[in-house]
């Protein structure tokens, strides 16, 4: 590469939480986990975790219980849609 080229020369991002910015303020609906329905919590084992797998913003942790980072969660609702036991519901954000 020519030394006089100003870097970075192109747009690239790493796969990481927050790479898209603080996208939490995009949210109109907030995901809320019902621990009484969540398979991971009920069986106290790192099973299922489909919410972690499907989250496009990587903001759901692979923990017991799964934690959702609302600073970056943009409220897309994919976790709620994919949860096989309907443990996640999308609730309207209250306006300031």
């Amino acid at each position: 590469m020519n030394k006089n080229l100003r870097k970075p020369i192109w747009a690239a991002s790493t796969l990481a939480k927050g790479e898209g910015g603080a996208t939490g303020d995009w949210r109109s609906h907030r995901p809320v986990l019902n621990k009484e329905k969540c398979t991971v919590v009920l069986r106290n084992k790192p099973v299922c975790h489909l919410c972690w797998l499907y989250c496009p913003e990587i903001v759901i942790s692979r923990t017991i219980p799964p934690e959702i980072d609302l600073l970056y969660c943009k409220g897309c609702g994919i976790c709620a849609k994919e949860c096989p036991v309907d443990a996640i519901s999308m609730e309207l954000e209250e306006k300031d």
């Binding site: 690239a12 991002s13 796969l15 990481a16 790479e19």
Partner: peptide, 24 residues
């Protein structure tokens, strides 16, 4: 080990990447 997303949506203002570097 270092998966990158090439040509993501790029806005009109610079933004910090996840590791804190300012992206054009």
């Amino acid at each position: 080990k270092h998966i990158v997303n090439i040509n993501p949506v790029t806005f009109s203002t610079p933004r910090p990447s996840a590791n804190g570097e300012i992206q054009p």
